[in-house]
């Protein structure tokens, strides 16, 4: 099971998750969603399920298992 589920169609490219991730497990994906924002991608190997991305995301992209 993945540590973090992401709904990248919700992402608006604010990148607050990247700034607040303590393990630098989130980065830009290089791809854009239907709204035209470059969305993020999570490296599940680095992730420690701390929930920081969930806390700071204004658009509910993340769900942490």
């Amino acid at each position: 099971m993945q540590k973090v589920n992401t709904d990248v169609e919700r992402c608006k490219g604010c990148y607050l998750c990247i700034a607040n991730c303590p393990k630098e497990a989130i980065k830009k994906s290089g791809k854009v969603n239907l709204k035209g924002y470059e969305y993020i991608i999570v490296d599940n190997d680095k992730c420690i399920s701390c929930g920081s991305c969930y806390q700071v995301c204004p658009d509910y992209v993340f769900e942490v298992n």
């Binding site: 608006k12 929930g51 969930y54 995301c57 204004p58 509910y60």
Partner: peptide, 28 residues
């Protein structure tokens, strides 16, 4: 699920500007 957005505020995709604080406050 450890962190799951409440169903009361997770109705549809928001149209706030990128980085707006309203989404976080609504979740709280």
């Amino acid at each position: 699920m450890k962190y799951k957005v409440p169903t009361t505020v997770d109705v549809m995709k928001t149209t706030f500007c990128s980085g707006c604080g309203q989404g976080v406050v609504n979740r709280l």
